[in-house]
């Protein structure tokens, strides 16, 4: 099957490496069934329905593949190799929404007081101060920096409210990395990612993953904190109309707080990354 879309040559997560056993995993990528398994030597294999061996890469806790021919290796997260970080496999959550809507929601902070009430935000601290957004031409990535927000409980390790600083990075159309000030280690950034596997234009499997400095909290509590946050978002994502992300500027109204989303949509459009997008208003 041909997907008339530049996104076909990108890498996508198709499973947790730690969860792959001999029985393998049947899943899908952009409407095409794929099977993840291991051969006799233990090497990870991903095959398409027509028997093609697809490119494979195992990184950041996940198995990655592509239906096309990736022109570059999977994006780098240098912090992932830093000593002393806890690497957290959060596990999959399926959402009936566009993979691009899932990423856009991850880039948004203004919803914290209403959707992640008393955890990532709370009234009356709803103001989004100005921050910087740019599309970095060398890396070809969307970046938002100097993002600040008041949070009642920014992380499992946080006690009491703090103003947290964030940086957001979009290195691939369905992946985003969030860098967040790290309460136990001032000067370092916690890394929280959202890896989205597009099953269809309006259905995705979301694989959050984290690399944190936190020696106190149990692994299970770290997983549950992130699952809590994402499942709070899920009921929003399943109720946005239309399901596809509108790239027509007339369809939705952004404000200054939405500059990251504006840049993300512009970047998607520029590259023809439109799997899960709606180009004209319907």
């Amino acid at each position: 099957m041909m997907i008339p879309n530049a996104m076909v040559d990108e890498w996508y997560p198709v499973g947790l490496f730690s969860q792959l056993d001999v029985s393998g995993r049947k899943t899908a990528l952009m409407g095409e069934p794929v099977e993840v398994g291991r051969d006799a030597e233990g090497t990870v294999r991903v095959t398409s329905a027509d028997g093609r061996m697809l490119p494979v890469c195992v990184r950041y806790g996940h198995i990655w593949t592509s239906l096309g021919e990736p022109r570059k290796p999977l994006f780098a997260i240098p912090e992932a190799d830093q000593l002393g970080r806890r690497l957290v496999d959060v596990g999959v959550v399926r959402v009936r929404c566009s993979p691009l809507r899932a990423v856009e929601n991850f880039l948004d902070i203004a919803h914290f007081p209403f959707v992640h009430t008393d955890i990532l935000g709370a009234e009356p601290h709803t103001e989004v101060q100005n921050y910087k957004v740019d599309i970095r031409e060398d890396e070809d990535e969307v970046w938002a920096t100097q993002v600040k927000f008041y949070q009642p409980q920014a992380a499992k390790s946080a006690s009491g409210g703090v103003t947290t600083e964030y940086m957001y990075r979009v290195p691939a159309p369905t992946c985003s990395i969030l860098y967040k000030t790290c309460p136990p280690r001032p000067g370092e950034w916690d890394v929280i990612t959202l890896f989205v596997q597009p099953l269809a234009e309006d259905l995705c499997d979301v694989w959050p993953w984290m690399a944190l400095f936190d020696d106190e909290t149990s692994m299970t509590d770290l997983i549950h904190f992130q699952q809590t946050i994402f499942v709070q978002d899920r009921s929003i994502l399943e109720n946005q109309i239309p399901r596809l992300l509108p790239l027509d500027p007339g369809m939705e109204i952004p404000t200054r707080a939405d500059l990251t989303s504006v840049a993300y949509r512009r970047w998607l459009k520029r590259h023809g990354y439109t799997y899960g997008a709606q180009l004209v208003a319907q």
Binding site: S235, N239, Q240, I241, M251, E252, P254, T255
Partner: peptide, 13 residues
Amino acid sequence: ADRCPHRGMRLSH
């Protein structure tokens, strides 16, 4: 209309 013009969320929620 059951749709917020900002991000398309259903207003009935």
